[in-house]
Amino acid sequence: MDLLDQLADTFFNWEEMAKVIPALLMVGLPNTLILAVTSGILGSLLGLLLAMMAISRNAGARWAARVYTDIFRGLPAILVILVIGIGLSPIAREITGNRNPYPLGILALTLIAAAYIGEIFRSGIQSVEKGQLEASRALGFSYGSSMRLVVVPQGIRRVLPALVNQFISLLKDSSLVFMLGLAASDREIFRIGNDAMANTGNLSPLVAAGIMYLILTVPLTHFVNFIDNRLRTGRPEKKEPDELAAPIGKGAQA
């Protein structure tokens, strides 16, 4: 067997790949999606709260958001997952009677995602012109209603690309929960590939897992480019030929 064949066998052993694909699709894929989507949604909600705190007039709220963000953005994801997953497991067992670390994995991913998403939301909300809040308040809306109806929706639209990027990152980071030692039915894409690799001594199952990640992330990356482009150029809208003057405030339509 020459070197090329040996390499091909190490990375692209079709037989080994075929063996692991059912588990990747039936167990790994759903678990990866559950981990990423759940913590993505919860992280967005918590992130929005953090963003509102970060721009609030209450110094205590601003400080709390700052400290939270500094901690969870400043730590390696794997460390947070281990500390939360192992450290909180006795408490979680006490409360829920369940010794499954899966929910704690979601919690850890959520806490990490919230720190990044909070910063994304904050920058988006702060990029909305001050006149928007002022106009809304001048109509008689309270600060809270103005934020909810006028400022935050515009801010979120502007950061959608960054938000999708964050979700891609979360999808990949969900692989780190393998450290918590999940039950066979709870294993996500990476762990399943990794287990198969360890069992067979062949890297191909891990390559198959990698391909699964790419199938998920590459379309998302292109989706980011698509919405980024669309937000930049504005949505295609018919313009009347007798338009009095060039539309102004082009950048405002985000």
Binding site: E129, G131, Q132, E134, A135, S136, R137, A138, L139, G140, V150, P153, Q154, R157, G249, A252, Q253, A254
Partner: peptide, 16 residues
């Protein structure tokens, strides 16, 4: 402010 309407230099329409 519901009783006092206001119009701004920069219009400040809601673009979304």
């Amino acid at each position: 402010r519901q009783r006092i309407g206001m119009v701004f230099q920069q219009f400040n329409l809601f673009p979304h």
